[in-house]
Design a protein around this nucleic acid. Structure first.
Lengths: 262, 262
DNA sequence: CTTGCCCACTCGTCTATACGAGTATGCCTG
DNA sequence: CAGGCATACTCGTATAGACGAGTGGGCAAG
């Protein structure tokens, strides 16, 4: 094992009351922030850091786990610990549901990703009737059963979003909305054809750490939160006609909204 | 030490290839989800779990660190490990900057928190001129120096948000905006009085894990992400007159937006 | 009764060791 | 030359032990 090139990392301060593993994490974090280790680059191995700092391996691993929790690095078994590259982000503009975007045949996700030069995919298609959860029922106005449309979105092979749309059965049953592929313009175009002219949407946004199931579905690295978005679509009569529950890998998204100043 | 009451937690499956510390974490998580341990309640101590499962202490600690990373529990030195209570959330509605909300003397934050029965505070007031960062400069239209207004918001003593407003010097210098207390209705009211009638706001939203500095400022528990919001205010002439950079404790906020369907 | 100390219990940090499993490389064999 | 295997390196999991430091309760002294 070659010695760790000096200069990259400093020494420990034994007089400090800051824990050793925190000092090591601090030095690694600073080196990353300063660009001494670039995105995707490999950090020194555990053994090298044990050697360099003269500490035990568990202490070094503890440092790494701090940085992992911050989403700064990720470990790959058998290979090393790497600076986590920031993935290309998908920007969601507040006009993304404007009627003019529903003209074309493809879904908004596909069109937009193609334009950005990414390879989009949609996945895990499931359409079925089911009992409405308490929350969905409340949002849709005391509906007992709903049509649920589940799908997962991928960009360049990486899953980035998992979404479920819920619609009242009296609106969706027996229509193209209940088909796996609802046709050009998606379910919003179909809703309008069925006489439910859309008036506005309401979106609620939260951020939190993912559940184990979400980690699995979205292949999330540790230290990556999710954005949880719940959108309710209202028609011109004020009726809630759809609730869409979306969980997004937070490192892959920037949401953008316009607010009037009135 | 009394034996751990049976029934709460099961046994390990030695034939499973799932790591022991994950199995323990799974059982604790499930027990929490099922409400066997309620919010704020103390989990079994490390020693009790060591006893119950017949594993070493580091293995138990490893399990706890998994749950901490998920934001499910938090440890208190000398006391124990507790189910993290969900704090009351602050809902930000999309009309929160409507002109009618600027009539009263107090800031929107104070009024709203009072109405919700919480005790609000504003803190860390700093107002100074400084060099604009690359990003702020771009958003404000190639401005070199700006007036920066920093403040921290607390609810019932807990810091929940840290915000910095940046304004071009030619607008803000020498006006009440450059004072620590800009007066009733806040800086948006002052901007309009100065002839910059506000037209709309643009908000960009990201979620990520906090930096160590943010953990300190917002007293964040591990496993709590932050919502990073960047708002740009435009006047009726299309000029960007303010950029507000806000970092919020994600467990304390729900953002809400209305989108037109046009 | 009140004060203060001690002790038991809690989590925090660190060491040293062991074995397992995934990855990559280079050498050796066919 | 091609294929496969050995090996060295990586991180993952787990044990056992030690000491430190924060917390809270009980006991003893005043």
């Amino acid at each position: 094992m070659p010695p760790l090139s000096s200069g990259l990392l400093g020494a420990l301060d034994p007089t400090s009351d800051r824990a050793v593993f925190r000092q090591i994490a601090d030095q690694l974090r600073e080196a990353i922030d300063r660009g001494r280790f670039k995105e995707g680059e490999k950090l020194p191995s555990e053994a090298e850091l044990v050697e360099h700092y003269g500490v035990s391996r568990m202490t070094v691993r503890n440092s790494f786990s701090v940085l992992q929790g911050e989403g700064l690095v990720h470990a790959e078994h058998g290979k090393g610990v790497f600076v986590r590259p920031r993935p290309p982000v998908r920007r969601l503009a507040s006009d993304r549901f404007a009627r003019r975007h529903r003209e074309q045949g493809k879904s908004a996700f596909i069109v937009e990703a193609d334009a950005a030069g990414s390879h989009p995919q949609v996945d895990s298609l499931e359409v079925k009737e089911e009992k409405a959860s308490q929350d969905v029922s409340t949002r849709l106005g005391s509906v007992r059963r709903v049509l649920a449309r589940r799908r997962r979105y991928l960009l360049d092979g990486r899953p980035v979003e998992f979404a479920t749309s819920y619609l009242p059965l009296d609106i969706a049953r027996g229509t193209p909305i209940a088909e796996p592929n609802p046709g050009p313009g998606g379910i919003y175009a179909r809703l309008e054809e069925l006489g439910h002219r859309l008036d506005h949407f309401e979106e609620e946004i939260r951020a939190r750490m993912p559940s184990p199931a979400e980690v699995k579905t979205l292949h999330l690295a540790s230290g990556v939160p999710v954005i949880h978005l719940i959108r309710t679509a209202y028609d011109t009569e004020g009726r809630a006609v759809e609730v869409c529950d979306t969980v997004m890998a937070a490192d892959a998204y920037v949401l953008s909204y316009q607010l009037p100043a009135t």
